[in-house]
């Protein structure tokens, strides 16, 4: 019996479908959720969610958030999420550069602005790392050609 998995970001439904196992980046450590898991409510840290279904694995980046686990479903609510295959590397790199420059320029620390830039930097780093680690070789070569 599969478990029904939904990944919802603030602006769209990123993924919904059955899974054999869902691996989550919990704040207390990584965890795998199988069907018939006990109800669980956990916060997530920046990281990747892996959804495995019949030998295939899909990888998503999530920017924190929470997960609500019920015996037959996993609902992930996050500020931002995307499938590793659909991350736009050029955009992520540009965002990273921009965030780094803005941090260099030095807005006062501990203000909302500073935190927002820091979060943007963490998001873009997360995306780039995830692409490096998880994107399939086919897509990678396609991407290099585009560069």
């Amino acid at each position: 019996m599969p478990i029904y998995c939904e990944i919802v970001s603030q602006d769209r439904m990123v993924f919904e479908g059955d899974a054999d196992i869902v691996i989550l980046p919990g704040t207390e450590g990584e965890m795998g959720v199988l069907p018939n898991h006990a109800p669980l409510l956990s916060t997530l840290k920046y990281g990747v969610v892996k959804v495995r279904q019949q030998g295939k694995e899909e990888v998503f980046t999530v920017a924190g958030g929470i997960v609500d686990v019920q015996p037959d479903r996993v609902v992930i609510l996050t500020d931002a999420a995307e499938n590793v295959e659909e991350i736009n590397v050029a955009r992520a790199e540009a965002a990273k550069r921009r965030a780094e420059e803005m941090l260099q320029a030095g807005p006062p620390p501990d203000t909302d602005e500073y935190l927002a830039i820091e979060a943007a930097l963490r998001r873009s780093k997360l995306r780039l790392d995830a692409v490096k680690k998880y994107r399939g070789p086919v897509r990678q070569s396609y991407y290099q050609r585009e560069e």
Partner: peptide
Amino acid sequence: DHQIGPAYIYEPGVHAI
């Protein structure tokens, strides 16, 4: 349709989350 199970496990802690 899903049936609700027993009480939640909370991580990190119930109040924090």
